[in-house]
Design a binder for these strands. Structure first.
Length: 424
RNA sequence: GGAGGAGUACCCAAGUGGCUUAAGGGACUCGCCUCGAAAGCGAGCAGGCCGGAAACGGUGCAGGGGUUCGAAUCCCCUCUCCUCCGCCA
């Protein structure tokens, strides 16, 4: 959510910057008009209420003294309907403002590259060596079928398409990666490990920005309380501190969470139908940070390095791209993607996304901090980043480390976790 | 799933329609005392949110509705926590 004061004072600049996302946000002018009316109403209502409070107080006093209060009752009656009418109008206008505000995306950071879509994202660096195969490399689903470690048919039988069963060393590989990533971030990078609920409510989805705009992407439970399957650990993670005032001394707060994420993938019906690149259910290790405004971009860089470290340790080739204005996520001011090299794709595929939401989610979720005991609360900055998507890491290992005989070499850093140096 | 109980500020807690501008205590902050500290004594402590340049006003007793000139207090709905029973990994 944007700051209404900032919107009032700096409307043209904000509209211009929002427009870099590719849609016109000129309708924000209406909101500012509505907000002016809102403040008018509020002031009138408040002065009438102040008057009413005064009279009511006198009624109490006179009654105690046994005096007649009929005249005062009559006087207070005059404004009763007026207050009620204005309060109705105020309520309506506040609802309209809120509805619109919840649909406005975050203002992109000024320095991010201008572009219309993902083709204009900017590559920052390439790291690692792309494998040079002396044979024709297979896509991961063929590698997996030969090793009997992934089973799509039986998964569809018990669930639906876009679900998968990991078997044998496949299941072991996934579990080893989760443990490896969790240990790396918790022990070496200093994040506090948390295990979060996989079912979240509407308020949580709204605070992080999934709702109201992207309601169709979520798996809704039929439970009448309005609950949804976790789409990413960002939702339960950031919402841990919803409606809280944190102490500045505790910042930055760093969490690392393993979660299973659930996505409808409605808009991607025909894409990546083979293999495990795009599933309805997948595992992810996620990094979460709460920071002060002045440190959030430093923390973003740190988080990016922590995510990259996973691929460096696993010896997988990747690149880092900076997301351009037209491809930027709804809640984010700035995002880096980490893309891992996938031979069957002939290029790099997203395996992680590291973002700074600045105070956008903090405003929606009431996440604040106080610099010292008597200071006014300020909105915190929230960040989240993959550390990394586990299923896509499996893809990268199976494809990049495959051998001519169909076996797969296990990255050295993973061997203590999986208990073997080769999957065959 | 059944039966009860509770939710007041950082914590504990009083408050059954107007003298509450939410008592009192603890914690906390400052001061006195002290070589220094503890104890004791004194003072401050509705903080948050909204409007306002400010003065100030409004709001606020888990959340939301309602009754009333006036609600922490009365009515309705919801949420959360606790206890017991049942079921259960």
């Amino acid at each position: 959510m944007l700051d209404m004061k900032r919107l009032r004072d700096d409307l043209d600049n904000i509209v211009e910057r929002l427009n870099k996302r590719g849609e016109d946000h000129g309708h924000l002018r209406d909101i500012v008009t509505k907000d002016t009316r809102r403040r008018e109403l509020l002031q009138e209502i408040e002065s009438l209420k102040a008057k009413r409070n005064e009279i009511s107080k006198n009624i109490g006093i006179k009654k105690r003294e046994g005096k007649d209060v009929a005249a005062l009752l009559e006087e207070v009656e005059k404004d009763k309907q007026r207050i009620a009418d204005m309060e109705d109008e105020l309520k309506g206008i506040e609802q309209e403002i809120k509805d619109t505000m919840l649909g406005i995306p975050n203002v992109p950071h000024e320095d991010i590259p201008l572009g219309k879509d993902d083709t204009e994202n900017v590559e920052l660096r390439k790291v690692g060596r792309i494998p040079d195969f002396s044979f024709e490399p297979k896509p991961h689903w063929d590698v997996a079928r030969n090793l009997d470690i992934l089973d799509f048919e039986r998964a569809a039988k018990i669930s639906a398409s876009r679900f998968v069963i990991y078997k044998g060393m496949g299941a072991r590989l996934e579990r080893a990666l989760i443990n490896f990533m969790m240990d790396l971030h918790a022990e070496e990078h200093g994040y506090r490990e948390v295990l979060l609920p996989y079912i979240v409510n509407e308020a949580a989805m709204t605070a992080t920005g999934q709702f109201p705009k992207f309601k169709d992407d979520a798996f809704k439970l039929t439970d009448e309380r309005g609950l949804y399957l976790n789409p990413t650990a960002e939702v339960p993670g950031i919402n841990m501190h919803r409606d809280e005032i944190l102490a500045a001394a505790d910042l930055p707060i760093n969490y690392v969470a393993f979660t299973t994420a659930f996505r409808q993938e409605i808009g991607s019906a025909g894409r990546d139908t083979r293999g495990i690149i795009r599933q309805h259910q997948f595992n992810k290790v996620e990094l979460i940070k709460f920071t002060t405004p002045e440190t959030s971009y430093d923390e973003l860089e740190k988080m990016l390095r922590h995510s990259e470290k996973v691929l460096q340790k696993l010896d997988l080739p990747y690149r880092v791209v900076e997301i351009c204005s037209g491809d930027l996520g709804f809640a984010m001011a700035k995002t880096y993607d980490i893309e891992v090299y996938v031979p069957s794709y002939g290029g790099y595929r997203e395996i992680g996304s590291i973002s700074n939401a600045e105070d956008f989610q903090a405003r929606r979720g009431g996440i604040r901090f106080r610099r010292d005991k008597n200071a006014k609360p300020e909105y915190a900055h929230t960040l989240n980043g993959s550390g990394l998507a586990v299923g896509r890491t499996v893809v990268a290992i199976l494809e990049n480390n495959q051998q001519e005989d169909g076996s797969v070499v296990v990255p050295e850093a993973l061997r203590p976790y999986i208990g073997t140096d080769i999957i065959k």
